[in-house]
Design a protein around this nucleic acid. Structure first.
Length: 705
DNA sequence: AAACTAAAGCTTTTT
DNA sequence: GCTTTAGTTT
């Protein structure tokens, strides 16, 4: 891409930011203002126009996903591969430096990294040894984590011994924890940052080396940096001070894990020569949504003023609905999604339902399932992650492929058949020794083992699996039934979980084994499938950085949003407001807020009042619509996944109710009904442009979407 | 190794 | 109130 066309793509402020290449730069990037675009273009500009080697530009973010996205967008822009450059997460880049230099800190270069589970169990074992209450290990671990985030190592903590709130017991654990890490040649996540800072501060020559190698620094999501990460960025910027930080103080929502908005506030103090550029043009939302967002966030007293604007039109007003209970709220949301979906303009993946707490997902999930609409839950435990569902799927996976040892190990003692940790370890051993799969190791042990009891237990299990494997050609619903009976699972599993199993059987109808397994795997959370056409359910926190045409925010109540725990402390209340702001600014076209009068929370049913944040939305921005803001149209045939997949009812057409279609003249619509003989199928289609039309398939020239 | 009992915790989350 | 998990018993 030529230099000019690169710059022509940008608005004046974005261009300023890209062209400012020398010295400290603070980019205050409002929501939806093209922040990533600026970073990637700035990288490309530095490299092409400024002749800076891509190898001397360092770009840091928080998540692997964000880093990967940044990298691939720059690669596309520059049309070249950027492998091995300084683009990555704080942790990954620190790790890279430490792998080379850590011997100066007395560690070996092949140190191991402890994840949260590892550090938790280390803390636990220390507490046990100290005869302290073990159950608080999580609290201690997170306290250690925030100490390190603030660059207070055990030594610094001990130096503070005279302070009044010095916690001697905690200090002992902290010191010991750090000693143990060293003994194990291990670093936890926070150490990766803290020790890199320590390395640079204690060994100026090392820092100098990196300062020479890296001439430009860019930090994304700067409002989420903690003290250690900010210090690291400053150290890396060295004397050249070519430090560009990008962030939005209004979207700082990770205080609880050490993020410090003050970093963004004090950047100008720390770098008096810093240029500050505000990106205020929003490319995402309608004016009404921006007005609502602006009204809310303006109530926060300490912030960098930004006034978002858009060239888009006013747009549709917000809706706000009060339901009686969380279940009513969920039904209302499901119903609204169906109405909007059936109008044909939006596909399922255009919808997101956001909430403050993961537990809210339950009611929503239930309602969506009843309405037969596909959804995915980010973060929480979704249907396919339920224990019993995973168990059954694991059986199917083993039947389909006995080499799948992960699934095999999951079900080997489920229901219990006397094969516990000891036996499993033994099979594992055998498998390693003979270089066999887990299943083959079981087979050979069952014939050669010295223990008769062990032999019998294992061969019984093998027999069940073999028997089931022989029947793998069966239709999945019957196959699942067979699994449930032959394994005794149905007798063993708790009653309330059976409901979910019936649900898998129901969903399995009309699919073959491979399809079912794939469907279940596709839903397995973390690896996000963009192409899966699903409604997205997630917390407000996980929604940061994303956008959806239609956004619901559920549970807009005092106690949930703002959360109980945050209502006392003004700082935390402000963060809750920012969280709401983040939620509002995710929406492109339509934003629907809802709350429930009563809600089951933990032990009891709570009566909650609408969030006080609601009154901060300018009253002209939304409809208060009581119970049912979106009028119900005539009753619609219930679209269940089963019905969508079943082929055995006439007409044998792919244009079944719920299917989205495209008509050459009327555009996109949704099939509401289909009937008639094979050679003369009639369909009723609801088009977003012209409403419901009755068409003959033979002539209509419909395209399935 | 499994079944039982007791007890804690329960906001948000990435590395 | 319910789920998860740790510890104890059989």
């Amino acid at each position: 891409m030529s230099k000019n066309s690169l710059l022509n793509d940008l608005n004046p402020q974005q261009r300023d930011a890209v062209l400012h290449t020398k010295g400290p730069l603070l980019i205050l990037a409002g929501a939806g203002s093209g922040k990533t675009k600026v970073i990637t273009y700035r990288f490309a500009h530095l490299a092409s126009a400024q002749k800076v080697s891509p190898a001397s530009i360092l770009a840091m973010t928080f998540t692997n996903k964000a880093a990967g996205e940044m990298r691939s967008r720059i690669e596309t822009l520059m049309n070249r591969s950027l492998k091995g450059l300084w683009i990555g997460t704080f942790h990954a880049l620190s790790n890279r430096i430490l792998r080379k230099e850590i011997d100066r800190l007395g560690f070996h270069r092949d140190f191991v990294i402890y994840d949260d589970d590892d550090s938790n169990s280390l803390v636990r074992s220390i507490l046990k040894e100290f005869k302290m209450h073990e159950a608080i290990y999580k609290g201690i671990a997170s306290r250690i984590s925030s100490m390190k985030a603030a660059l207070i190592g055990p030594n610094e903590f001990l130096n503070n011994e005279t302070s009044l709130d010095f916690d001697e017991k905690f200090a002992r654990v902290y010191v010991r924890y750090q000693d143990e890490l060293k003994k194990n040649n291990a670093l936890d996540f926070d150490d990766l940052i803290m020790d890199t800072v320590r390395l640079f501060e204690e060994h100026p020559a090392v820092l100098k080396k990196y300062n020479k190698e890296i001439s430009h620094i860019m930090v994304d999501e700067f409002q989420d940096t903690n003290t250690a990460q900010y210090r690291l960025s400053r150290l890396l910027a060295g004397e050249h001070q070519n430090l560009c930080v990008v962030g939005d103080d209004d979207q700082s929502i990770y205080r609880f894990r050490g993020a410090d908005v003050r970093n963004i506030m004090s950047f100008e103090k720390d770098f008096p020569s810093a240029r500050v550029i505000k990106l205020e043009q929003n490319y995402r939302s309608t004016q009404v949504i921006l007005d609502a967002a602006g009204g809310v966030i303006s109530q926060n007293p300490v912030r960098k003023l930004k006034k978002l604007w858009t060239e888009k039109n006013e747009g549709e007003k917000l809706y706000y609905c009060v339901a009686n209970s969380e279940n009513d709220e969920a039904r209302y949301i499901a119903k609204s999604i169906r109405e909007l979906y059936l109008k044909g303009k939006y596909s399922y993946s255009d919808f997101a339902v956001l909430y403050r707490m993961n537990l809210q997902a339950r009611a929503l999930e239930e309602a969506l399932r009843v309405y037969g609409m596909p959804y995915r839950i980010i973060g929480g435990i979704s249907f396919y992650h339920r224990r019993e569902v995973k168990d059954i799927i694991s059986y199917l996976k083993v039947i389909n492929n006995p080499k799948d040892s992960v699934s095999l190990k999951r079900i080997i003692n489920c229901p219990p058949r006397g094969i516990g940790d000891t036996t499993t370890a033994r099979i594992e051993n055998e498998a390693k020794k003979k270089n066999k799969s887990f299943f083959d190791a079981m087979k050979s042990l069952s014939s050669s083992s010295d223990s008769a009891a062990l032999k019998e237990k294992i061969s019984d299990f093998i027999e069940i699996i073999d028997e089931l494997t022989a029947k793998r050609g069966m239709a999945p619903p019957q196959l699942i039934q067979l699994v449930l009976e032959k394994t005794g699972y149905i007798k063993w599993v708790e009653k309330e979980r059976i409901e979910n199993i019936t649900e898998i059987i129901r969903m399995a109808e009309g699919m073959n084994l491979q399809e079912l397994i794939d469907a279940a795997s596709l839903f397995s959370g973390a690896d996000e499938r963009v192409d899966s056409n699903c409604i997205t359910l997630m917390t407000l926190h996980s929604a940061k950085g994303l956008e959806f045409p239609v956004v619901f925010i559920a549970g807009v109540e005092n106690g949930l949003l703002p959360h109980f725990h945050a209502m006392q402390n003004p700082e935390e209340l402000h963060e809750e407001r920012r969280l709401f702001y983040v939620g509002i600014t995710r929406a492109k076209d339509i934003l629907i807020l809802s709350s429930a009068k009563k809600r089951r929370l933990y032990s009891s049913i709570q009566e909650l009042e609408p969030s006080s944040f609601l009154s901060e939305i300018p009253s002209g921005c939304y409809f208060y619509t009581g119970m049912m803001p979106i009028p119900m149209v005539e009753s619609v045939p219930r679209i269940t996944p089963k019905r969508l997949r079943t082929v055995d009812f006439s007409p044998p057409s792919i244009f079944l109710p719920g299917v989205r279609v495209k008509h050459p003249k009327w555009g996109i619509g949704v099939v509401r009904d289909s009937y008639g003989e094979t050679d003369d199928v009639k369909v009723m289609v609801n088009f977003s442009t012209v409403g419901v039309k009755r068409l003959s398939l033979k002539f209509a020239n419909l395209e399935r979407l």
